[in-house]
Design a protein around this nucleic acid. Structure first.
Length: 431
RNA sequence: GUGGGUGUAGCUCAGCUGGCAGAGCACUGGGUUGUGAUCCCAGGUGUCGCGGGUUCAAGUCCCGUCACUCACCCCA
């Protein structure tokens, strides 16, 4: 690397990442990958097949699927017009896109349920905050086509197992039911009547009109007190929804998944029905939800497909990673390489470069010192790489047909024949 | 969109009521010519976010501005 001395030192970098988007780089990026992969693996173990879907879709898909009146659609979408004059939106959530793909490719015409998992980034133009980014990452699953409470429980268990596999313990699962198309409208009216009689401020009154459930979840103590006696959805469920809810709880007990009921839980997306849940972690600040989901029985039909039920979740990779950091667990924590090459001179360098191919092919994570650093600098590189062994090679070694294998932690060093390097290294690593 | 907090070295941050730019980590070179981490020595570490004002004198006080951040709202 050459340094340019012509440009004056400047305090501000020439470019900064757009507002509210995270950069992940080593060593944190290793944990990020591990979190994402661990959560996907949990879904894979339950028979969910991976789907890779586009990051942008027709704007109308989200407007119709997520709901026009939601905050997400009304003010948080990244929407633009493409060169064909189509309105395009960067996906703010995952379920609508999966449903679109299921319908478009007729995945629901085979055996049901269709069980799919996805991972990727999502976009919402919100004010950034701890754990809330404008580009964030989720792992999600959707199970479409079977209205079985055991499936609700499975989805929840998959999320729980994923978090547990990460080593997380400081979270809880909150559960409730939002009812169905018969009982929810009735309850909503009942709740609005109750709220209308309360001395609420203008802002809250407006919210009561738009989404009365949300008022129940207000953080202000004085409001909480006012709504303490408000009617609750769980007390006004239809017979069918109530039975469904009870069975979900029963299956969760069978699965050994602990939960607490929170009848005041709010979901920001319109499509949820019946079972809804959220994984909450204390210690993340205000954005405490590390995952959430539920059942969405009207969504497929709403998007022009068959009237099939569905249930799924979205788990926040960024927030799960934060939770890991808060709890002091570091998934994916490993050194950068196993073995590090230290060449002395050009001849040795070309020998080590040549060796890197067979070593890596044998599964050894191998790096070497570039740039002609000299022994001291190259050894320093070996140390910083976290490698267990250094391969030191100089003129004397080449003449003798050997390479020095040095264990960095102990300082022990021994020559091995150059011809047997790969085998010797594998042996030294205990493989 | 609305509030609070913070902007000093690559990173984490000191710097009291105005008076010469600081520490640790990291980085580079050296301390036996073929050995790192430890130890010692030397060294870049800098528009003190930016602009204006007050003052003999501003990192410090005032105004503006931008950025970051936390929170409201909302949510993964």
């Amino acid at each position: 690397m050459t340094t340019s001395s012509s440009a004056p030192a400047s305090s501000a970098p020439p470019f900064a990442a757009p507002k509210g988007v995270p950069d992940y780089f080593p060593p944190t990026s290793a944990s990020f990958l591990a979190v994402r992969d661990t959560l996907i693996e949990s879904a894979r173990r339950a028979g969910y097949g991976y789907v890779e879907l586009p990051v942008f879709e027709d704007t109308a898909l989200f407007a119709r699927g997520v709901g026009e009146s939601t905050d997400v659609v009304s003010k948080e979408m990244y929407t633009f017009t493409d060169r064909g004059n189509r309105s395009i939106t960067l996906r703010p959530e995952g379920t609508a896109g999966v449903m679109r793909a299921v319908i478009e490719h007729g995945l629901d015409r085979g055996q049901l349920p269709v069980k799919l998992a996805y991972a990727g980034q999502f976009f919402r133009a919100e004010q950034p905050q701890a754990g809330r980014y404008r580009q964030f990452h989720q792992v999600g699953v959707e199970a479409v086509g079977v209205d079985d409470p055991a499936l609700d429980a499975e989805v929840i268990a998959v999320a729980d197992a994923g978090f547990r596999a990460l080593g997380l313990t400081g979270y809880r699962l909150e559960l409730t039911s939002l009812g169905d198309t018969t009982c929810r409208p009735q309850y909503r009216e009942k709740l609005q009547d109750f709220l209308a009689a309360l001395p609420l401020d203008e802002e809250t009154r407006r919210r009561a009109e738009l989404n009365p459930l949300r008022v129940l979840d207000d953080k202000r103590p004085e409001v909480r007190e006012l709504v303490a006696d408000a009617p609750l959805m769980v007390d006004n469920l239809s017979a069918e929804s109530l039975a469904h809810y009870e069975q979900v709880k029963g299956y969760l007990n069978d699965l050994g998944v602990k939960f607490v009921e929170n009848p005041r839980m709010v979901r920001g997306l319109d499509y949820y029905t019946k079972t809804t849940f959220e994984f909450v972690h204390d210690g993340l600040g205000a954005q405490s939800g590390i995952g959430g989901g539920g059942r969405y029985d009207g969504l497929m039909e709403q998007l022009g497909g068959q009237p099939l039920s569905g249930v799924g979740f979205g788990l926040g990779v960024d927030r799960a990673l934060l939770a890991c950091q808060v709890e002091g667990v570091s998934p994916g924590d490993e050194t950068r390489c196993d073995v590090y090459g230290v060449p002395l001179g050009e001849a040795a360098k070309s020998r080590l470069v040549a060796l890197s191919a067979p070593l890596r092919a044998a599964g050894v994570r191998f790096d070497l010192s570039y740039g002609g650093k000299g022994l001291k600098g190259a050894m320093k590189g070996a140390d910083r790489s976290g490698a267990r062994f250094a391969l030191v090679l100089g003129e004397r070694d080449i003449e003798a047909g050997v390479v020095q294998v040095k264990e960095l932690a102990s300082g022990d060093q021994r020559p091995v024949p150059l011809a047997d390097v790969v085998i010797s290294v594998l042996e030294a690593l205990g493989r």
